[in-house]
Nucleic acid binder design. Structure first.
Length: 235
DNA sequence: GCGACAG
DNA sequence: ATCTTGTCGC
């Protein structure tokens, strides 16, 4: 199947077929080696644009190594279960701008905790053939017990009799986050990796950075580059 | 038919 | 996600 038809299906039915197609390629297995380069991705929106941001970090130190952004017109509506067709293309093309290929993708959204096991983390992991982890701020599918009130507690997230991730209370008294494996990792890997990235916040540090970058992009879009010789005081 | 429903 | 002001609490 061509990349063009995977990224830009013309309607929801075709999008569903893309998901069913990609599912055949899904592989979940424990990581052999710890990742060294983690890329956190996020997207923001205006009425007509998708603004993507990618932040590359060393792992597990989490030192920022590189940032990239990209903008595309909105081509797909937001429909629960089809988020990857709204945000995916812009994020995909922005990831291609990185000077180095990441060992792990940390995505703002679900992995296999999805009606068809194809959340955006799984989608990106498969088309880029890279291990990925989904970290969503709210529930999409699956059954779970609410984790205890204290930070660090977590419960399994199951769907149709399968373990699809964990519900994690990253900090005391905050709403839990939903962690699920995307591609080429195990549910436990996903949980462990997200925990290492928390740094005391509700959402992993790398994703916060990506989110901020996305918001800044909306405020200072490229093309609005300040011209030299205009009130710069040195001419 | 009813309720749920990532970002 | 985005819109959108003040306000409750540590």
């Amino acid at each position: 199947m061509k990349l063009e038809q995977i990224l830009y299906p013309e309607n929801v039915d075709l999008a569903r077929r893309v998901q069913v197609h990609l599912l055949k390629k899904l592989k979940l297995r424990p990581l052999t080696e710890s990742p060294r380069l983690l890329a956190a991705v996020d997207a923001a929106f205006t009425e007509e644009l998708v603004l993507a941001a990618v932040c590359l970090f060393s792992f597990p130190e989490l030192e920022l190594l590189e940032e990239q952004t990209g903008i595309e017109p909105v081509r797909f509506p937001y429909i629960p279960g089809f988020l990857s067709f709204r945000e995916g293309p812009a994020i995909y093309h922005t990831l291609q701008k990185l000077s180095r290929k990441p060992d792990l993708l940390l995505v703002d959204g679900q992995g296999i905790a999805h009606p068809r096991r194809l959340g955006i983390a799984t989608f990106l992991g498969i088309i880029l053939d890279t291990p990925s982890v989904g970290c969503a701020k709210s529930h999409l599918v699956g059954e779970f017990r609410m984790p205890a009130r204290s930070g660090g507690s977590c419960c399994r997230l199951t769907h149709r009799g399968q373990l699809v991730g964990y519900v994690l209370r990253s900090r005391t008294a905050v709403r839990p986050i939903f962690v699920s494996p995307g591609h080429l990792v195990s549910p436990r890997d996903a949980l462990n990796l997200v925990r290492k990235g928390l740094r005391g916040f509700r959402v992993p540090e790398p994703l916060r950075r990506a989110h901020h970058l996305t918001q800044n992009l909306k405020l200072s879009p490229p093309g609005n580059k300040p011209c030299r010789n205009k009130n710069s005081g040195h001419n």
